[in-house]
Design a protein around this nucleic acid. Structure first.
Lengths: 123, 123
DNA sequence: AATTTGCGAAACCGAATGGTTGCTCATATA
DNA sequence: TATATGAGCAACCATTCGGTTTCGCAAATT
């Protein structure tokens, strides 16, 4: 069907240009575990895969997603590739949370004031 | 200043197979927009849907996901249902970020010390 | 009582996701 | 030079996801 082909081509974006979403990247529990694992020191795909119950290829795919959204950086060393966490990208999540942190801190202050008022009235 | 909460709250399994993940919930851009929309005041599905280019039913599905992972709370009022953000659940994301925030704050301090040392040596 | 309105549930569809196996390729090592 | 090893890619598969349309139902309005 012609329409189908057009629709498919429309969605076919070059892999190199593909930009992933950080939030989509951390949605997967395995990827979150990988992130936590390499947070302190860079690791190779094989070393990472040893910590999980899946194949190295599956981990490789996860690393590709993490690399595409720039949550992770490669460092080639011979035939080994060390994957390192990009903390700056993690801050992007923190930045999104900021707007809500403002709200809950504000509510906390309000509660604090309320408690203070009650305390005052008791005296 | 708000004291940090150290308690390690576990993900509790709600209804057998309905175990939704907060991270999976915020992976979708529309759901993030909904969250931001109702952060300050509760809204009905119809009111929310007006802000998007999809059907009310699609929004309803998103609200179901958000409700299942308890990011959102319902408040029935006649035949209308007001959806309200559960800020406490948002803190769960913040708590996950905590471990990384520790790292980047530590690195910042290290940089700071390095700069101080250089400054000292110049004198 | 009849109709409108607000909302969720179900069925369906195409696209995306996460995993597997098999392959190629480059770099070490014997 | 021959072989072992680290790693990404491609093809395939089952499942999930996000959206639509259709529908049912309870609460408001007429």
């Amino acid at each position: 069907m012609v329409a189908h082909i057009f629709a498919t081509e429309q969605f076919h974006i070059n892999d190199a240009q593909m930009r992933r979403d950080v939030f989509q990247a951390i949605a997967d529990p395995t990827r979150r575990a990988i992130i936590a694992l390499i947070a302190l020191q860079a690791m190779t795909p094989n070393a990472i895969a040893e910590h999980f119950d899946t194949t190295r290829q599956a981990i490789s795919k996860h690393l590709r997603v993490l690399t595409e959204c720039e949550l992770v950086k490669q460092e080639h060393q011979g035939r080994e590739i060390y994957y390192q966490l990009e903390l700056d990208k993690m801050k992007e999540i923190d930045k999104w949370l900021e707007q809500f942190r403002k709200i809950w801190e504000n509510r906390f202050q309000q509660l604090d004031q309320l408690l203070a008022t009650i305390k005052k009235q008791k005296k």
